[in-house]
Design a protein around this nucleic acid. Structure first.
Length: 202
DNA sequence: CCTCTGATCTTCT
DNA sequence: GAAGATCAGAGGG
Protein backbone atom coordinates (compact mmCIF):
# COMPACT_ATOMS: atom_id res chain seq x y z
CA UNK A 1 0.00 0.00 0.00
CA UNK A 2 2.51 2.71 1.00
CA UNK A 3 6.13 3.21 2.03
CA UNK A 4 6.77 4.58 5.51
CA UNK A 5 7.90 8.20 5.12
CA UNK A 6 9.82 10.96 6.85
CA UNK A 7 6.87 11.83 9.08
CA UNK A 8 6.81 8.26 10.38
CA UNK A 9 10.50 8.08 11.36
CA UNK A 10 11.08 11.65 12.55
CA UNK A 11 8.71 11.48 15.51
CA UNK A 12 10.21 12.13 18.94
CA UNK A 13 9.01 8.95 20.70
CA UNK A 14 10.97 5.80 19.75
CA UNK A 15 8.70 3.66 21.95
CA UNK A 16 5.66 4.57 19.86
CA UNK A 17 7.59 3.99 16.65
CA UNK A 18 8.75 0.56 17.89
CA UNK A 19 5.09 -0.39 18.42
CA UNK A 20 3.99 1.07 15.09
CA UNK A 21 6.63 -0.93 13.19
CA UNK A 22 5.03 -4.27 14.14
CA UNK A 23 3.21 -5.71 11.12
CA UNK A 24 5.17 -3.63 8.59
CA UNK A 25 7.02 -5.29 5.69
CA UNK A 26 10.83 -4.95 5.56
CA UNK A 27 12.40 -5.67 2.17
CA UNK A 28 16.12 -5.88 1.39
CA UNK A 29 17.76 -6.27 -2.02
CA UNK A 30 21.34 -7.23 -1.22
CA UNK A 31 24.37 -6.42 -3.40
CA UNK A 32 24.15 -9.97 -4.81
CA UNK A 33 20.81 -9.00 -6.38
CA UNK A 34 18.67 -11.29 -4.23
CA UNK A 35 15.54 -9.91 -2.55
CA UNK A 36 14.31 -11.15 0.84
CA UNK A 37 11.48 -9.65 2.87
CA UNK A 38 9.76 -10.26 6.19
CA UNK A 39 6.99 -8.94 8.43
CA UNK A 40 8.32 -7.19 11.54
CA UNK A 41 7.14 -9.10 14.64
CA UNK A 42 9.61 -7.94 17.32
CA UNK A 43 11.35 -4.60 18.06
CA UNK A 44 13.10 -2.71 20.85
CA UNK A 45 13.19 1.06 21.45
CA UNK A 46 16.32 2.99 22.46
CA UNK A 47 16.20 6.64 23.55
CA UNK A 48 19.08 9.07 24.03
CA UNK A 49 17.04 10.59 26.88
CA UNK A 50 16.97 8.77 30.19
CA UNK A 51 18.04 5.38 28.78
CA UNK A 52 21.47 4.10 29.71
CA UNK A 53 21.06 1.10 27.39
CA UNK A 54 21.17 3.40 24.33
CA UNK A 55 24.48 3.65 22.47
CA UNK A 56 23.89 7.41 22.23
CA UNK A 57 22.70 7.91 25.81
CA UNK A 58 23.00 11.56 26.76
CA UNK A 59 24.11 12.26 23.16
CA UNK A 60 27.43 10.53 23.72
CA UNK A 61 29.18 10.25 20.35
CA UNK A 62 31.54 7.44 19.32
CA UNK A 63 32.83 6.38 15.92
CA UNK A 64 30.40 3.46 15.99
CA UNK A 65 27.20 5.41 16.66
CA UNK A 66 27.73 8.45 14.36
CA UNK A 67 24.79 7.39 12.16
CA UNK A 68 22.36 7.72 15.08
CA UNK A 69 22.81 11.52 15.00
CA UNK A 70 21.46 11.77 11.45
CA UNK A 71 17.81 12.65 10.76
CA UNK A 72 15.40 9.72 11.18
CA UNK A 73 14.83 7.42 8.21
CA UNK A 74 18.24 5.74 7.81
CA UNK A 75 19.60 2.36 8.88
CA UNK A 76 21.99 2.10 11.82
CA UNK A 77 23.99 -1.14 11.54
CA UNK A 78 26.71 -2.02 14.03
CA UNK A 79 28.67 -5.13 14.95
CA UNK A 80 27.52 -6.88 18.12
CA UNK A 81 29.87 -9.16 20.08
CA UNK A 82 32.37 -8.72 17.29
CA UNK A 83 30.41 -11.01 14.97
CA UNK A 84 26.79 -10.13 14.26
CA UNK A 85 25.60 -7.04 12.39
CA UNK A 86 22.42 -5.73 14.07
CA UNK A 87 19.88 -3.63 12.15
CA UNK A 88 18.25 -0.53 13.67
CA UNK A 89 16.16 2.27 12.20
CA UNK A 90 17.26 5.76 13.23
CA UNK A 91 14.32 7.87 14.43
CA UNK A 92 13.68 11.47 15.60
CA UNK A 93 15.37 14.59 14.18
CA UNK A 94 19.03 15.34 13.50
CA UNK A 95 21.12 15.33 16.71
CA UNK A 96 18.27 13.59 18.59
CA UNK A 97 19.81 10.10 18.44
CA UNK A 98 17.05 7.53 19.01
CA UNK A 99 16.68 4.15 17.30
CA UNK A 100 14.53 1.02 17.01
CA UNK A 101 16.27 -2.38 16.91
CA UNK A 102 14.65 -4.92 14.58
CA UNK A 103 14.69 -8.19 16.54
CA UNK A 104 12.62 -10.68 14.52
CA UNK A 105 10.74 -11.14 11.25
CA UNK A 106 8.08 -13.50 9.94
CA UNK A 107 9.39 -14.74 6.57
CA UNK A 108 7.61 -13.39 3.46
CA UNK A 109 9.36 -13.21 0.09
CA UNK A 110 12.67 -14.91 -0.82
CA UNK A 111 12.61 -17.74 1.70
CA UNK A 112 14.78 -20.02 -0.45
CA UNK A 113 17.57 -17.46 -0.60
CA UNK A 114 17.21 -16.82 3.14
CA UNK A 115 17.54 -20.55 3.89
CA UNK A 116 20.70 -20.69 1.79
CA UNK A 117 22.28 -17.73 3.55
CA UNK A 118 21.41 -19.18 6.95
CA UNK A 119 22.57 -22.69 5.95
CA UNK A 120 19.29 -24.14 7.22
CA UNK A 121 16.82 -26.69 5.89
CA UNK A 122 13.02 -26.50 6.02
CA UNK A 123 12.94 -28.30 9.37
CA UNK A 124 14.68 -25.32 11.02
CA UNK A 125 12.48 -22.72 9.41
CA UNK A 126 11.56 -21.25 12.80
CA UNK A 127 15.19 -20.14 13.23
CA UNK A 128 15.26 -18.31 9.93
CA UNK A 129 14.77 -14.73 11.19
CA UNK A 130 13.90 -15.18 14.91
CA UNK A 131 16.68 -12.99 16.31
CA UNK A 132 18.48 -9.72 15.49
CA UNK A 133 21.64 -11.43 14.22
CA UNK A 134 19.74 -14.13 12.38
CA UNK A 135 17.62 -11.70 10.39
CA UNK A 136 20.57 -9.64 9.15
CA UNK A 137 22.20 -12.84 7.88
CA UNK A 138 18.95 -13.95 6.22
CA UNK A 139 18.42 -10.57 4.54
CA UNK A 140 22.05 -10.04 3.52
CA UNK A 141 22.42 -6.91 5.68
CA UNK A 142 26.03 -6.15 6.60
CA UNK A 143 27.96 -3.12 7.85
CA UNK A 144 27.84 -1.52 4.40
CA UNK A 145 24.13 -0.81 5.10
CA UNK A 146 25.02 1.57 7.94
CA UNK A 147 23.71 5.04 7.07
CA UNK A 148 21.62 3.82 4.11
CA UNK A 149 18.38 5.66 3.49
CA UNK A 150 15.26 3.56 4.17
CA UNK A 151 13.47 4.89 1.07
CA UNK A 152 15.46 3.01 -1.58
CA UNK A 153 15.06 -0.34 -3.31
CA UNK A 154 18.04 -1.82 -1.40
CA UNK A 155 16.18 -1.47 1.91
CA UNK A 156 12.71 -0.13 2.62
CA UNK A 157 9.70 -0.56 4.89
CA UNK A 158 6.10 -0.60 3.76
CA UNK A 159 2.65 -0.55 5.30
CA UNK A 160 0.84 -3.36 3.47
CA UNK A 161 -2.32 -3.09 5.52
CA UNK A 162 -1.53 -5.82 8.05
CA UNK A 163 -3.13 -4.54 11.24
CA UNK A 164 -1.63 -5.24 14.68
CA UNK A 165 -4.10 -4.10 17.31
CA UNK A 166 -2.84 -2.72 20.63
CA UNK A 167 -4.12 -5.77 22.52
CA UNK A 168 -2.02 -8.01 20.26
CA UNK A 169 1.24 -6.39 21.38
CA UNK A 170 3.23 -7.80 24.31
CA UNK A 171 5.81 -5.57 26.02
CA UNK A 172 8.66 -6.72 28.27
CA UNK A 173 12.17 -5.67 29.33
CA UNK A 174 14.80 -5.56 26.59
CA UNK A 175 17.27 -8.38 26.06
CA UNK A 176 20.89 -8.24 27.19
CA UNK A 177 20.96 -4.73 28.65
CA UNK A 178 21.62 -5.52 32.31
CA UNK A 179 24.50 -3.03 32.28
CA UNK A 180 21.91 -0.22 32.06
CA UNK A 181 20.89 -0.54 35.72
CA UNK A 182 17.31 0.59 36.43
CA UNK A 183 16.84 1.43 32.75
CA UNK A 184 17.16 -2.27 31.88
CA UNK A 185 13.71 -2.73 33.44
CA UNK A 186 11.96 -0.41 30.96
CA UNK A 187 9.37 -2.51 29.04
CA UNK A 188 10.58 -1.39 25.63
CA UNK A 189 10.71 -4.76 23.88
CA UNK A 190 7.60 -5.33 21.75
CA UNK A 191 6.35 -8.56 20.22
CA UNK A 192 3.29 -9.65 18.29
CA UNK A 193 1.33 -11.82 20.69
CA UNK A 194 1.29 -15.54 19.80
CA UNK A 195 3.61 -15.07 16.82
CA UNK A 196 5.62 -18.20 15.99
CA UNK A 197 8.44 -16.05 14.66
CA UNK A 198 9.68 -13.94 17.60
CA UNK A 199 13.07 -14.49 19.27
CA UNK A 200 13.40 -17.07 22.06
CA UNK A 201 15.58 -15.04 24.45
CA UNK A 202 14.12 -14.15 27.82
C1' DC B 1 14.53 -29.42 27.24
C1' DC B 2 18.74 -27.04 29.29
C1' DT B 3 23.53 -24.94 30.27
C1' DC B 4 28.08 -23.89 28.71
C1' DT B 5 31.44 -22.03 25.45
C1' DG B 6 33.92 -20.00 21.57
C1' DA B 7 33.90 -16.60 18.14
C1' DT B 8 36.44 -11.87 18.17
C1' DC B 9 35.07 -6.02 17.22
C1' DT B 10 34.12 -1.64 19.78
C1' DT B 11 34.23 0.93 23.70
C1' DC B 12 35.49 2.28 28.18
C1' DT B 13 38.22 1.59 32.65
C1' DG C 1 41.42 -6.10 30.54
C1' DA C 2 36.44 -6.73 30.45
C1' DA C 3 31.95 -6.75 28.83
C1' DG C 4 28.59 -6.29 25.37
C1' DA C 5 21.39 -4.71 21.91
C1' DT C 6 24.33 -12.70 19.74
C1' DC C 7 24.41 -17.27 17.77
C1' DA C 8 25.52 -22.21 16.95
C1' DG C 9 27.14 -26.36 18.47
C1' DA C 10 28.26 -29.66 22.08
C1' DG C 11 26.95 -32.21 25.88
C1' DG C 12 23.71 -33.71 29.57
C1' DG C 13 18.78 -34.87 31.32
Amino acid sequence: MSELDVDFYRRADPVQIARDLLGKLLTVSAPDGQTVSGWIVETEAYSHLNDRACHAYNKRRTRRNATMFRPGGVAYVYLCYGIHPLLNFVTNDEDMPDAVLIRALEPAEGMEQALLRRKLNQKKIRDLMSGPGKLTQALGVDLSFDGRSLYVKEINVRDEGRMVEADCIVSSPRVGVGYAGDDSMLPWRFRVKDSLWTSPAK
